[in-house]
Write a protein that binds this DNA or RNA. Structure first.
Lengths: 229, 229
DNA sequence: TACGATACACCTGTATACAAAATACAGAAT
DNA sequence: ATTCTGTATTTTGTATACAGGTGTATCGTA
């Protein structure tokens, strides 16, 4: 964490956005552990930026709930429990279920084609065991699927909650023995959408989310064990 | 909107927080209409603060989805549709339902007593027809009720979504013919919690939310009419 | 009159400067 | 030894300065 250099200046994004993304990633991956106090001058120096954009990034993180602000003491990275994971998945499941009928209803052949295209890419990554790329690709697939529902706010809430557990689900995907089996289910999900089989779609999605939760919880517990030594 | 002075310096909050609260309220009430471009120097001058805390407030509003950021053009107040209201209430209903069993399960006599205390205050406001205070008080009651569930993230999502429609629900409460009847239902809700009657509690809550949605939609449509002339 | 180039004003993005609060620490008094 | 206190240092909170980009008005030319 000593040298936290920013990605090469994209020049299209404001520095505050890059700082936001960088810090968010570092917090989510655990690179900056919970409880760490983020001293502004310190991190601004590390990133070779001034305090102004850094502070703006911190305000967004604060709004995300990733850091906590204490009056006149700055921000501290927030911790996070098993109950959090349970609640996040409760939210996720409830909202995801709401979108399913809309997905079935709205899905066009073009949507199906695009999903199958994404699945093909997932197939390759899965076969190659490319964990690095697999995790975000799987997330993109789910995101695309849900977006078909047209329920943008719901999608936003789901993704917002998802961010908190990303680091655990990433680990989970990497470890999961049944990863390829789970991946087969992705194909099935698209089939159900294409056939407008809501009942099967719903049942499978619920199972899918439930398993995701279990692996996530396992990853969290392991990380706790690792912390406590 | 010419003179947007800040509330007398509470001195405990940073200026950015006060600016955030002030702007949020102004947007939610419609005082700053959708589509308005917020020019930083302009608003900083009006509020008699510098751009730095104002910008930090804007970053939070951006994260809330109340304003939209355009590269090199600053932020614009976001508009908002009937579909938004529908989706917000869909989210709200789904999540609220999740909390109900937990509320029944967790509610202590102290919780019940506190709710009844809040109801007593609502009674007074309702009888006096004090719309100004009634709206936030009713919100506080619902918030307190939901918080008993201990599902803090869910509560946070619900309240987050709720903010978007606050201005309409405030109008709705003011107009609602059946306001006192609706208020009677608040008493009933607490009764059901006390008696641990989940079925009745659930049924009434769902009806309650549904009606809230209808009045909110009506308020939105009226405001659209007002806009279009 | 229509079109295009140039100049200018405005505004955002970022850095830096300054003020005030909190903390750490050293030394004195008990 | 301990506690209190005054001071130095660190760090946040806010203001201001400056650079660069965008849009617009103006003017010249066809």
């Amino acid at each position: 964490m000593n040298n936290m250099s920013l990605p090469p200046s994209t020049e299209s994004k404001p520095i505050r956005e890059i700082a936001y993304d960088t810090l968010k990633k570092a917090i989510i991956t655990g690179e900056i552990p919970a409880g760490t106090r983020i001293v502004e001058t310190d991190y601004a120096d590390r990133m070779h930026i001034s305090r102004t954009p850094l502070r703006e990034a911190l305000r967004k993180l604060e709004r995300d709930g990733l850091v906590e602000y204490v009056l006149r003491r700055g921000v501290v990275v927030r911790a996070f429990t098993i109950a959090d994971v349970n609640e996040i998945y409760t939210i996720r499941n409830a909202l995801e279920m709401l979108t399913l009928p809309h997905i079935i209803e709205n899905a066009t052949p073009a949507d199906i084609a695009e999903l199958r295209q994404m699945l093909a890419e997932l197939d390759v990554l899965d076969a190659a065991g490319d964990i690095e790329k697999l995790s975000p690709a799987a997330r993109a697939f789910h995101s695309r699927l849900t977006s078909i529902s047209g329920q943008r706010r719901i999608l936003r809430v789901i993704e917002g909650q998802d961010e908190y557990i990303r680091r655990f689900s990433a680990v989970a995907i990497a470890k999961e023995d049944r990863r390829s089996a789970a991946h087969q289910e992705h194909h099935l999900l698209v089939d159900y959408v294409e056939n407008k089989d809501l009942a099967s779609f719903t049942a499978l999605m619920e199972k899918h989310i439930e398993r995701s939760k279990e692996t996530c919880l396992m990853a969290l517990k392991e990380s706790k064990l690792a912390q406590n030594g």
